[in-house]
Nucleic acid binder design. Structure first.
Length: 912
RNA sequence: GGAUGCUUAGCUCAGUUGGUUAGAGCACCUGCUUCACACGCAGGGGGUCACUGGUUCGAGUCCAGUAGCGUCCA
């Protein structure tokens, strides 16, 4: 067997196991009716993406769930893939092409798409390799891409189906227009940002009464040429006589526009009058509709003022146009005032430019299954963790708006709609759209393609990823579904994602899942997942969101190089409390690495301590235990092992990942390494106790490695092999079944090992004694002294306990001897209370004075505490109302305190 | 404006149905190259639990309000 090196070197270990696991096909999920499946679909990262800290957290958690499920004997399947990310990818490739002085429009649609595919084949999906470096145990052979031909077919067939069901329609409506990407966006893709702008007060002169003006306030004077009316509230007395009159538009081609009355007007804002510009504002558009007003669009798609804006503004970019418009209004005297104004401006999520409300033809989806989608979350068929996100989800569904699913892009699923040649797309009526002679909608396309023109638009990316949980399993193709094991792996179990895409993705997947499963199937079979775990957002140390532009996001690959994948995983999980945002601090990752090293060295110590015996199975290790010869430490460490096993089980069942990590860390470092391994050093010197002690170490290490494996897969697999727990060709990650605490106890019982759970009390007393004596030695500058002569005052019973543990204590206390003594009144000696025992120590005169002061202080503190407890017990209300257990606790506490107080008094008097 | 989360040690955070003297990691101080580990060991200091009021025998924990920070929605 290879010996274990002095420190853990992650790089080689990770590379080696990555390769071995892949070669042995350890990640594959296969249909196996003898096992219960456990499925996770990865939230597909953008194909343009690179690994961020958010991905590290999210995917580590998924890998923990998947690896744990495997260890529990379930058929785990984690399906990976990438999202074609319409706008993002198209933007990246366009940028690349621009460097070569190539414009997408010059290239043409087909050639451009070829370029995108080339880019994707060459550079796309790097993130999947990065996930492999992190140790993600995805079933890589199942990797999916939302633009794969088969997946695309699923997307388009859903479009056709929903169209046929009447859920999809085409309409000319106000959309969020991105003037940079030249496409419509859904409401969810618009980010509201506070902006500092100017509010312009502009006056419009009455046509029939020159010299009389009505003023309005606007942030967008450049759209004045698009004004078609001024609106006031019908009950506003200030304007009662104005309604129906005409005013002159103060900018752009000269025009006279009416003053109209509309109840939607806010009388409190500005002068109570609103300029109505239906082409450039959603509210104005609605007012325009109510009053049959035209919409004058003064902007081009790219956000440049057009000829309708008038010769002075035409050709100007919208923000320059705004400035110019203000100047022109000033010159003509129409600008009354200009003041700073804070408001919220919608930005395009992708292009990060202000969006423009714009009237365009788009495809819209009336969401299916809205009520059912509410019910499954409300009724707990799907459980959100933390639960509070359910409220956010339900609120969105309550106020749901139709989804604009068309995008004016090339990269994406081209909408399977064909228009009869020669038809004016912009002039189609609802009847036209329903007429198969004029509009053809199908997967296959028309049989006479030359007579038709296909829709240019593609679908919103989310209109493909909302099918992810089942389209990745071959749906709707029966043969592909059978091959992928759809019937076995669907529905999936857990979704791990960020709350930022609860609307984009989670809600839509639930609706799609419900829509595309048989309505008569049990509801548990129709939802796409049962549990949704929402991670927190990783922020930098200052609490800012990590972003490329701020450059405040560490590169996870650098962190892997520095701390190891396991260190990174362990560290990030340890700082990821349930559902709270996370402030990233690199020292926590360093802590993860240090823990790896600790684990490594504890195993190294085991290897150096004695020959390896049969570790090949739990039964084999347990058979080596010599139960009847266990001392208190043996009982206690196994007791703690069982408790830790239970704590981890429970934490994982509740998605409390950081609690699981904390339980393992505390157990292994403090209970095992700092205490049990230290007491082992004496036990290993005795032939009588050596073998059983080594067996206990083997047992603890075995169980700890299994419990830790989901969190730190590489180092645990390596140590598993090095310590002989698994034979060549077998893997901890694939071939091992983790035991829960009751299985461990059964195994112990089978081999005649009966744990004494009371031993923990004795051990905690020994720990207190040890710690007190060490503190005493440290106080006296004897911390490193190896040959202290210690005298302990103890009753016969107490001494009997100490005697059993003398060898261990001597070693840990640096004592040449520990003997029993009695305190006699003598100014040069005193005792220190060490839990149940007292340490007698010799003092010189000066130290005696200090000791007296110390004891006096302690006595006073005790007296104060006693008074408090006594007062509590003296309170009749407390005695009559508190539960018996609490009452007993208080009484016992008082008795203990009094005993301690008396003891301190005795020591004081002994000091003279 | 509505919703929601947070405020506990110098920092980042735990603290499960209310119950002894509120915990961890890091940082800090002291000592130690002890035959697994200095990526370590031992010892130590450090907290009016944001504020105000209420409920209760008892509040970090429950309720109401206030302030500050954050997020989502409009």
């Amino acid at each position: 067997m290879a010996s274990i090196s002095k420190s853990y070197e992650s790089h080689d270990v990770e590379r080696r196991w990555s390769a071995d696991w892949r070669a042995a096909d350890c990640f594959a999920g296969r249909v196996n009716p003898a096992k219960t499946p456990y499925t996770i679909m990865i939230p597909p990262p953008n194909v343009t993406g690179v690994l961020t800290m958010g991905h590290v957290l999210n995917n580590t958690l998924q890998d923990i769930l998947i690896r744990r499920a495997r260890l529990e004997g379930r058929e785990a399947m984690w399906l990976p893939g990438t999202d074609h990310a319409g706008i993002a990818t198209q933007t990246v490739v366009e940028r690349e092409l621009r460097k070569q002085k190539i414009n997408r429009r010059d290239l043409g649609r087909e050639k451009f798409l070829e370029k995108v595919w080339e880019w994707r084949d060459e550079k796309g999906g790097i993130i999947l390799q990065q996930l492999q470096a992190l140790g993600a145990s995805c079933d890589w052979d199942r990797t999916q891409f939302t633009m794969d031909p088969r997946y695309s077919k699923a997307v388009l067939s859903v479009f056709v189906d929903l169209f046929q069901k009447g859920q999809i329609y085409r309409g000319k409506r106000m959309v969020n227009w991105c003037p940079a990407s030249l496409t419509a966006l859904s409401d969810e893709e618009v980010i509201m940002k506070p902006a500092k702008g100017l509010l312009y007060e502009v006056r419009y002169e009455r046509v029939d009464a020159p010299g009389q003006f009505i003023t309005v306030k606007t942030t967008r004077p450049e759209t004045i040429p698009g004004d078609v009316a001024i609106a006031v509230h019908p009950e506003d007395p200030r304007y009662a006589s104005w309604i129906g009159k005409l005013v002159r538009r103060p900018l752009g081609p000269s025009a006279e526009i009416p003053i109209i009355a509309d109840a939607a007007i806010d009388r409190e804002f500005g002068s109570g009058a609103l300029k109505v510009t239906p082409a450039h504002d959603k509210v104005d558009f609605e007012i325009g509709q109510r009053h049959q007003l035209p919409a004058l669009d003064v902007l081009t798609a790219a956000g440049v003022l057009n000829e309708l804006a008038g010769s002075e503004l035409a050709g100007m970019e919208r923000f320059a146009g705004r400035k110019k418009a203000a100047e022109l209004l000033k010159e003509s005297g129409a600008l009354v005032k200009e003041e700073p104004y804070d408001n919220n401006v919608g930005y395009s999520e992708r292009a990060d430019v202000p969006i423009e409300p714009r009237l365009t033809w788009q495809w819209w989806l009336k969401y299916p299954q809205v009520e059912a989608a509410k019910a499954v979350v409300r009724d707990g068929v799907i459980r959100f963790h933390p639960e509070r996100w359910a409220k956010v989800y339900l609120h969105w569904l309550e106020n749901i708006q139709d989804w604009c699913i068309s995008r004016q892009l090339w990269w994406g699923h081209r909408i399977p709609v064909w228009y009869r040649k020669g038809l004016d797309k912009e002039a189609l009526t609802a009847a036209d759209l329903a007429d198969p002679q004029k509009v053809h909608v199908s997967l296959a396309g028309p049989t006479d393609p030359s007579d038709w023109v296909q829709e240019d638009d593609v679908l919103d990316t989310w209109a493909s990823s909302w099918l992810w949980p089942f389209a990745t399993l071959g749906w709707p193709d029966q043969e592909a579904m059978a091959k992928a094991g759809h019937a076995y792996f669907y529905p999936t179990n857990t979704l791990v994602t960020g709350p930022d895409i609860i609307f984009f993705w989670v809600a839509r997947m639930i609706m799609a899942g419900l829509e595309y499963t048989p309505a008569d199937a049990p509801i548990e079979q129709r939802v796409p997942f049962r549990d949704v775990y929402f991670t927190g957002i990783i922020r930098d140390a200052q609490g800012r969101k990590m972003s490329k532009s701020l450059g405040n996001s560490p590169d996870p690959l650098d962190l892997i190089a520095k701390y190891g994948a396991d260190g990174l995983r362990f560290g990030i999980v340890s700082i990821a409390p349930q559902g709270q945002d996370i402030r990233f601090q690199e020292d926590r990752i360093e802590g993860g690495k240090n823990f790896c090293n600790k684990l490594w060295n504890a195993c190294r110590f085991r290897q150096m301590s004695g020959a390896m015996a049969d570790n090949s199975s739990l039964a084999a290790v347990v058979a080596r235990l010599d139960g009847p010869k266990f001392d208190a430490d043996d009982h206690a460490i196994l007791d703690r092992l069982l408790a830790t096993t239970r704590a981890v089980d429970q934490a994982l069942a509740n998605f409390e990942f950081s609690n699981a990590v904390q339980a393992l860390y505390g157990f292994f470092w403090n209970d095992f390494c700092d205490w049990y391994v230290e007491v082992s050093k004496a036990k290993l010197l005795e032939a009588a106790t050596k073998d059983s002690c080594l067996a206990i170490q083997d047992l603890v290490l075995r169980q700890t490695l299994a419990l830790l494996h989901p969190f730190m897969p590489f180092i645990t697999e390596e140590l598993w092999r090095l310590l002989g727990y698994g034979a060549e060709g077998t893997f901890l990650m694939r071939d091992v079944r983790i035991e829960d605490s009751s299985a461990l106890m059964t195994e112990f019982a089978n081999h005649g090992v009966q744990l004494d759970f009371a031993a923990a009390t004795e051990v905690s007393q020994l720990k207190e004694l040890t710690s007190k004596i060490r503190a005493f030695k440290a106080d006296n500058g004897e911390a490193a002294k190896k040959d202290s002569e210690l005298v302990v005052e103890a009753s016969a019973e107490q001494w009997a306990v100490l005697e059993l543990n003398l060898a261990k204590l001597k070693r840990m206390l640096g004592a040449a001897s520990i003997s029993r003594g009695e305190l006699s009144p003598n100014a040069s000696a005193c005792v220190t209370a060490c839990g149940t025992w007292n340490l007698i120590r010799q003092l010189n005169a000066g130290d005696a004075v200090a000791e007296k002061a110390r004891l006096t202080k302690e006595s006073e503190a005790l007296a104060k505490h006693i008074a408090g407890t006594a007062a509590r017990l003296g309170n009749e209300a407390f005695v009559s109302k508190a539960p018996p257990a609490v009452l007993d606790g208080a009484r016992k506490q008082l008795a203990d305190l009094k005993a301690k107080h008396a003891e301190v008094a005795r020591l004081l008097s002994a000091l003279g």
